[in-house]
Computed example of a mutant assay.
Amino acid sequence: MLRFLLAQSSFNLWVIFLAENLLVTVLALLFGWLVLKLNHKPIKAASRQEVFICILTNVINTAITYAGFWLWQHGYIRFSYTLSWYIAFDFIVLFILMDLAMFLFHYAIHRSVFYKAIHKFHHHYADPIPIDLFVLHPLETVGFGSLWIVIIVLFNFNLYAVFIYLIVNVFFGIMGHLGIEPIPACIRNTMPFKYLGTSSFHHRHHLDIHHNYGFYTNIWDKLFKTYKG
């Protein structure tokens, strides 16, 4: 796959990366729709603004993907490609690092002037639907994308661990914007779910902007005293 991409022109790479991002978005929204359907939740139609911002987010994410590919192509990003237990180890490290980095970024936005200027846009949707995962202010999309680029520049991860992380990232994002909690309380209170950022955990953040800044886990909120169960 990487050899195929290396043989492509810049224009072809932009088209491929845009198609990839759009495909991920469509699959994520279909998954969200399926979960809502199985839980008999009425599915609210997205507004024109939500659709437009979702498309814009995909375009920005395409630029971030291209930037990451260019950095890899020129040796600034390095991956290992071996199939071993290091895949699991690298995934866990990447998962924790990104969770911490995004928590700090999210917390900082809420505690600064940037909230009203940038992040308040996302909080317009107090009762989110799956597409709202992709409804962010363009500058915020760039910010989260930059965090991702910085982490994979600073650390060398297994490529397969990166792919697994990207899938998990979208899964958590969609689950956090369902507007419902599909996981029963008896499961949420057991290991490891009681430490994860479940749907109700992130939904509560949309209802109360002063708590639950985490993404994948609630660990940092508990440490920084911003957790609300």
Rank of each mutant, 00 (worst) to 15 (best):
M1P: 07
L2I: 15
L2K: 15
L6E: 13
A7L: 06
L13I: 07
L13A: 04
V15F: 12
I16W: 11
F17L: 10
L18Y: 15
E20Y: 12
L22C: 12
V24Q: 12
T25S: 10
V26T: 12
L27V: 15
L27H: 09
A28K: 00
L29E: 03
L29W: 04
G32W: 05
G32D: 04
G32I: 06
W33Y: 14
V35S: 13
L36R: 10
L36T: 01
K37P: 04
L38S: 09
N39H: 15
N39A: 08
N39K: 14
H40P: 00
K41L: 01
K44N: 08
A45V: 06
A45K: 15
R48V: 10
E50H: 12
V51I: 14
F52L: 14
F52N: 09
I55F: 15
I55N: 00
I60C: 04
T62Q: 09
I64L: 13
T65M: 13
W70I: 15
L71C: 15
W72I: 05
H74S: 14
F79P: 03
S80D: 13
Y81L: 07
L83E: 11
L83V: 14
L83R: 05
L83M: 12
Y86L: 13
A88I: 14
F89D: 06
F89K: 14
F91T: 01
F91W: 01
I92H: 00
I92W: 07
I92M: 09
F95A: 00
F95I: 00
I96M: 01
L97P: 02
L97Y: 04
D99K: 00
D99Q: 00
F105R: 09
Y107P: 02
Y107V: 00
A108G: 08
A108H: 03
I109P: 01
R111F: 04
K116F: 04
I118P: 02
H119N: 05
F121G: 06
H123L: 10
H123G: 08
D127P: 01
I129K: 11
I129G: 03
P130Y: 12
V135Q: 05
L136N: 12
L136C: 03
H137Q: 09
P138E: 04
E140D: 15
T141F: 09
G143L: 03
F144W: 12
G145I: 03
L147P: 00
W148I: 05
F155V: 15
F155W: 11
N156T: 15
N156E: 14
F157C: 02
F157D: 10
N158A: 06
N158D: 05
L159P: 02
A161L: 04
A161H: 02
A161G: 03
V162A: 06
F163K: 06
V168A: 12
N169Y: 13
F171Q: 06
F172W: 02
I174F: 05
L178F: 06
G179A: 10
E181F: 08
A185P: 07
C186W: 15
N189K: 11
P192A: 11
F193I: 11
K194C: 13
K194M: 13
Y195R: 12
T198C: 02
T198R: 01
F201M: 04
F201Q: 06
H202G: 01
H203G: 11
H205S: 07
H210C: 07
H211W: 08
N212F: 05
G214D: 11
F215A: 03
N218R: 07
D221P: 11
K222C: 08
L223A: 12
L223M: 14
T226S: 05
T226N: 01
Y227P: 07
Y227G: 00
